[in-house]
């Protein structure tokens, strides 16, 4: 079907799907659905890691 419509239609579909999939792969989407707790700036990484460890190191009562 797509082949009959020519290379432009193919390219348009590729562009549409790529845009859609890229949008789905954005970190904002993962965070919006809670696959991520947060999205952080690179420079914050050390501080955030240290705080997250401090919170989780309070006790160990389950996996």
């Amino acid at each position: 079907m797509l082949a009959e419509q020519g290379p432009d239609a193919h390219a348009a579909l590729v562009a549409e799907l790529t845009a859609e999939w890229n949008a789905e792969a954005e970190p904002w989407e993962a965070a919006a659905h809670l696959s991520l707790d947060d999205v952080i700036e690179p420079a914050e990484t050390r501080r955030v890691v240290a705080t997250a460890i401090a919170i989780a190191a309070h006790g160990r009562f389950g996996g």
Binding site: A32, H33, L34, A56, H58, G59, F61, G62
Partner: peptide, 19 residues
């Protein structure tokens, strides 16, 4: 649904680490 999952996750974390 998302707000519920968010609350459940927070509760589980506090209980797992005991505070």
């Amino acid at each position: 649904p998302i707000s519920m999952r968010k609350q459940g996750g927070l509760i589980e974390h506090a209980q797992r680490h005991g505070f």
